[in-house]
């Protein structure tokens, strides 16, 4: 089978493996998923619309309490399916809601994943997502990079390359979503030590799944040095290590003619000056500054 995405950042098998490994104990580490699912749920409450065919892409089964609590799932028993969000198994125009909870940051081809989601939506269908953004774990990235340079004379990717919030709006538009909205939250969690942070990340199923990662045993020296740097640069006054998680929230709609659209430039039929009850003044053309070569 040809690889659908030749430039793979993430090893998707590892991602599934780490997720499965964390499944049994997930409720102990699901605070970020809970938090994001709740935020998405709040946004959903603001939209007065019934969604009868919805897909929720989450790091744990749909029936898991983490998701169930936030979405007030009632009589309509949901169905779980296992799927890869890089190759979605939904027919075109089959869903009116697609919500993704902290999974899209591991897509190798994020624009492609967004296009597939948009295609699976009916016209005027809604896409909601929470994903980790570029600020996430910047302290860990900094400490690991500097420690690795110091102890091994080179660096290897140890923290996921997260998407930048600034790019998400245009990515949504490129994927064909109308009325895109992007915002974000910064959540700072403090940890006793580096080990506790690593333990939490593992519990969330977010261990390093970068395809090109250094798979050798990192050795103790690297972590001792990383912890020293981390504590020096990114600790609270009481000595606890700060870890930032940036959660980007996306909203987009599959296009439909009922949606509001900007008018063509020059198509206005009323003058702004009349609406404001003021006079219109021409702006004097500014002379170019003389250039000295």
């Amino acid at each position: 089978m040809p690889d659908p995405c030749p430039q793979r950042i993430f090893d998707r098998r590892d991602i599934r493996r780490f997720r499965n490994r964390s499944r049994n104990d997930f409720a102990r580490y699901d605070f970020l998923v809970q938090n994001s699912a709740q935020s998405l749920s709040d946004r959903l409450c603001d939209i007065r619309r019934q969604f009868d065919t919805a897909a929720i892409d989450g790091p744990c089964p749909f029936t898991h309490p983490s998701i169930r609590r936030s979405y007030h799932i009632g009589e309509n028993a949901p169905c779980d399916i296992v799927a890869d969000n890089e190759v979605l198994p939904f027919a075109g125009h089959s869903l009116n809601l697609f919500a993704s909870i902290l999974t899209l940051h591991t897509a190798n081809d994020l624009p492609g994943a967004l296009v597939q989601i948009r295609r699976s939506l009916t016209p005027d269908g809604l896409f909601l997502a929470a994903l980790f953004g570029g600020e996430t774990l910047f302290e860990l990235r900094d400490a690991m990079t500097r420690a690795e340079l110091a102890t091994r004379g080179g660096v290897s990717p140890r923290v996921f390359p997260f998407a930048d919030k600034q790019q998400m709006g245009s990515l949504l538009q490129r994927a064909g979503f109308a009325l895109p909205v992007v915002d974000s939250d910064l959540i700072t969690v403090t940890y006793r030590d580096l080990r506790a942070l690593m333990h939490d990340l593992r519990g969330m199923g977010q261990s390093n799944a970068i395809a090109a990662r250094d798979r050798r045993n990192p050795g103790k020296a690297l972590f001792t040095e990383a912890e020293r740097i981390y504590r020096k640069a990114h600790a609270d006054e009481d000595g606890r290590l700060r870890a930032t998680f940036e959660i980007i929230y996306l909203i987009g709609w599959a296009p439909h003619e009922s949606q509001q659209k900007p008018l063509r430039p020059g198509s206005a039929t009323a003058r702004l000056a009349d609406a404001l009850g003021t006079n219109e003044h021409n702006v004097p053309t500014r002379r170019r500054p003389t250039q000295h070569s």
């Binding site: 169905c79 190759v87 198994p89 027919a91 075109g92």
Partner: peptide, 19 residues
């Protein structure tokens, strides 16, 4: 048994044809 409504919306992830 799989929910018949689910079967209506599922397609092959590779070829996107009904199953």
């Amino acid at each position: 048994d799989v929910d018949p409504k689910l079967l209506e919306i599922l397609v092959c992830p590779l070829t996107k044809v009904p199953l």
